[in-house]
Design a protein around this nucleic acid. Structure first.
Lengths: 338, 338
DNA sequence: GTGAAAGCGCTAACAC
DNA sequence: GTGTTAGCGCTTTCAC
């Protein structure tokens, strides 16, 4: 009987108890073919009695790998990033690797935090507006596998993103189809590559129809309050407000209600992401495959990690997104569901 | 000029380049007082030239600590867990530790995954319905600091949770105040300690007023679809439907609409969590301090890790929650805002 | 089949 | 002040 297991047992103790060398313990526990069934059993029993679990640190140091990878994202507020991270974690777990998360979240020392993270993982997924391309390039140059997610491509690196520009054009066309001619875009294209793409798409579709899209209205955030504040001194009857994401759009909806403007009769509003709230707010928006974004990044990264000798060309994938028409974009025939 | 930095530099290379021993490199880079300014500079320069960053593995192995801790949660679906995890990450980052996340998410090998995670961290936060108390106790017995989050206490371990029972009583009283007398509870108390507390509170408050609460209606999930399905063959005029969380409640709302029942005239519905969608659905619910839950757990865990010699008694904290009255619970005077 | 021993990259005693 | 050296806990040649 083992008396205590307070300080974790090491491979040496198991070896001693089983009457073998540490090498044999290592082999036996890893199901190597080079051990007798009898020895294996003896070692197993000893390990069990001592409640032995190999030290991750010792193992990683010896193997030269962490069996973990990291994801860096701007913030976990709002369901969007959460869903992406969940998809990532689920895929990584399936591949047998642990996940370290890092939210840069307006942190001033984001670079340092990412560098630190880089030292703990076999590869890194870098999302959107977190750190600059220079750091990404620098880390990639050290041989660290990196996948870019929802972010402008960098030569030589895999990139996964969602369709922005094209669906934004569809969205804009839908709005002009409703007869809208006066537009504003709420959100900072400089704040995220995704938003930049959406802005471009809307502007393009509008200019194709001879409608001008003013410069984007930059907000001090991506959340509901930011949208609400901005909308207050902006909204007016006849306007179509295209928002960078759903939270902003929901803020606009609240502001409109407060101002006594009806949506969509007086004001059209659209979002992006198709959050749960969008459905209940009757918000026209664009759905994106959030989990799939995360899962794809995790799988690609794993491939880069496990096949380092396979320096395949950088891959790029753009996952499709989809316009979801609800009430907020204009008056529809009655059969249009919520 | 360093020619390449493809394979990461080690402390030995820096030592050689600087013409000192590895011990001096270690000291210089860690701002030890035991090095001349001149030496320090020389080492710094060499390290910079080689783009040297100490190996996390080597360092952790030598120090005997990971400088990381983990959080285990059931799933990241729904904004609730995401917010908790964000609060956790933010607090941990401030304390200088990395965060490993693990979503058990219905995984059958949750125990194994948690054991594996336990080997990578200095401490663990275990949330809700993930793994059993037996495993938690076992891990705690090895000396691993553990904090329980949104989960029934285990002797000797710190526990952080949100107020459930008491606010549930307030909620139920509010409903009877509206005149409701027929109730159902949607959600499985066995599926989460939080839900169990909510059910207890509602039942208690009702029985205090001589109203009986039937056995809970167990769902096959905690999401919108589950609520929708369950509501279909359940809802009837005059019923007050108390839901375990907002997503279920939102599902009920959709089912009610489909069935041609008006809320709150024909049917009262309440949720729990105060998701963004609840606001737009006019759903009466209970707000909980999600980020604060995560942040508190992270801070408590850090304290346990950094002060192992301080075997303070197990702490328990119940963070307050708050009833948010909207339209769905009953007809209100006009001044009740959304 | 099994053991001895050499690392993996660092930190921290202990010498000088 | 700086260097030497012994670990930290494992994996993996290389002998036997």
């Amino acid at each position: 009987m083992a008396m205590k297991a307070l300080s974790r047992a090491t491979i040496y103790q198991v070896a001693q108890l089983a009457g073998v060398s540490i090498a044999t313990v290592s082999r036996a526990l890893r199901d190597s073919e080079l051990v007798t069934a009898a020895t294996r059993e003896r070692v197993r029993a000893a390990a069990k009695e001592l409640r032995f679990t190999p030290s991750r640190l010792g193992r990683s140091l010896a193997e030269g790998r962490h069996a973990a990878n990291g994801i860096v994202f701007p913030e976990l507020v709002g369901p969007y990033y959460a869903e992406v991270v969940l998809g990532y974690e689920a895929a990584a777990a399936q591949l047998g690797t642990s996940v370290l998360i890092l939210a840069t979240n307006g942190r001033t020392d984001a670079d340092a935090a990412v560098r630190e993270l880089a030292g703990r993982v076999d590869g890194l997924t870098v999302m959107g507006r977190t750190v600059g391309d220079d750091l990404v390039t620098e880390l990639a140059a050290t041989g660290l596998p990196i996948v870019l997610l929802a972010r402008d491509p960098v030569p030589g690196l895999d990139t996964v993103r969602a369709q922005n520009t094209r669906t934004a054009r569809v969205l804009a066309a839908h709005l002009t189809g409703h007869g809208h001619r006066r537009f504003v875009f709420l959100g900072d294209p400089g704040g995220s590559p995704d938003v930049a793409g959406r802005y471009r798409g809307v502007r393009k579709a509008l200019s194709d129809e001879g409608v001008a899209l003013p410069a984007p209205v930059r907000l001090d955030g991506f959340d509901l309050e930011a949208g609400q504040r901005a909308a207050r001194d902006l909204i007016a009857p006849g306007l179509a407000v295209v928002c960078a994401n759903d939270e902003i759009a929901l803020g606009v909806l609240l502001a409109a209600e407060a101002a006594g403007l009806r949506v969509p009769e007086d004001l059209a509003v659209t979002g992006w992401d198709d959050l749960l709230a969008a459905r209940f707010a009757g918000l026209t928006t664009v759905r994106q495959p959030m989990r799939e974004l995360g899962a794809t990044a995790a799988r690609w990264l794993d491939r880069r990690i496990t096949e380092p000798d396979h320096p395949a060309a950088a891959r790029r994938r753009i996952l499709p997104t989809q316009l979801v028409v609800r009430r907020s974009c204009g008056t529809h025939p009655p059969e249009v569901a919520r």
